[in-house]
Nucleic acid binder design. Structure first.
Lengths: 195, 195
DNA sequence: AAATACGCTTGATGTAGGTCAATACAAGGT
DNA sequence: ACCTTGTATTGACCTACATCAAGCGTATTT
């Protein structure tokens, strides 16, 4: 038995609507619990992202590998976040991203086709989908602006104030990559900001 | 009389659905034509973005000004694109962005409240909204990845292949800012890639 | 038609942050 | 308990790109 309550609570909170017992049954029938151990991949570059996952427990990173072999983390994800490469998921194209568990991971996953099945019948779910897509658009806009206008130090301070728990959950080299910095630079930057 | 046909065509093409005559009347009643001359602002930093605009003719830039007074262009927009700071528009918070006409601009604009009025009644419109939000998410993901993983030159080549018409419509210094480069760097970069 | 502003290029110089390498320590696996 | 692997720090050096400044051609403005 897996924790569907986390998913139900999440949908109800984000959408501001209640789920009926039928809704819940429908969700339980279409979302499958899946466990990944640390280091396992939820998605590998080149594969189509067939599933979207809701994180019940654990953490993950979404990253690319460039031609020089360097990794770039685009997203760090925790409990109550969705896990997917949306481009690949929506368009069914091969993904350029890897998604890897950073801690043992429990997700509830569902396929593109199945999601369509309850977008219409469950009003709370489609309301949630709309809110999320708004939030994503906003977050992306902010992140893009930060990447363009802020210095490394400002971006780090931004992270501290917006996602303070990241510092506890993710090692510093992951944070550095997420900020677009080398681990050395982040280390130095922290030292200087403390004097 | 203004060109609503462009808007109708756009909605129908993106959504894959037809608009009824009633739909069209509803849209015409709620979207108002607005003209801006080159250099005029569609949105100013600090104001709430009350309107979303559909560009019928012309072009615009969305940019921020940092504390050193430097401008950073986040978006360049042309015909058949939507114009808004979605964060401000959705949440009704003061915007950090400016949106300025780069050429004489004709838009069809509507307020947040009015948009809600036809999200439900016009199926083609809500289908379009969903597709657009998907496209935005995808485009943002790509852009973020490009900003993190690519060099200046790669980003420029990316732009050439994805938006070749940008080079005709926007001056080079705007392109540079959009790519996160100084105008001098872009100029040099072009010279080198031609040998 | 003159005056002004704007956009592009080129050169000289500056700097934020990357790369490489060494060390130290903590954590997991067997 | 040992060995391996991952993570953080620090120093020396490097590079991509920014900044500053000057010159030039082409639009705009008056």
């Amino acid at each position: 038995m897996s924790n569907f309550e986390a998913l139900f609570d999440y949908i109800q909170e984000i959408s501001g609507k209640l789920l009926s017992e039928d809704d819940k049954r429908l969700l339980m029938a279409h979302f499958k619990p899946k466990k990944l151990r640390k280091r396992q991949y939820f998605l590998q570059e080149g594969d189509v992202c067939k599933y979207i996952g809701f994180i019940v427990k654990g953490s993950a990173r979404t990253f690319t590998v460039d031609e020089k072999g360097h990794e770039h983390i685009l997203k760090l994800s925790l409990e109550n976040w969705w896990l997917a490469d949306f481009e690949s998921f929506y368009l069914l194209t091969p993904s350029r991203f890897n998604i890897e568990a950073l801690e043992d991971l429990e997700v509830l996953q569902s396929s593109n086709a199945q999601i369509e099945d309850f977008l219409k019948p469950i009003p709370a779910f489609s309301a949630m989908a709309n809110v999320i897509s708004q939030n994503y658009t906003i977050a992306n806009q902010k992140r893009m602006q930060a990447a363009m206008s802020y210095t490394a130090e400002e971006r780090y301070e931004d992270l501290i104030s917006n996602y303070p728990h990241f510092l506890q959950r993710f090692p510093q080299n992951m944070i550095a990559s997420y900020l677009g910095l080398s681990p050395e630079t982040l280390s130095r930057l922290k030292k200087n900001s403390f004097k």
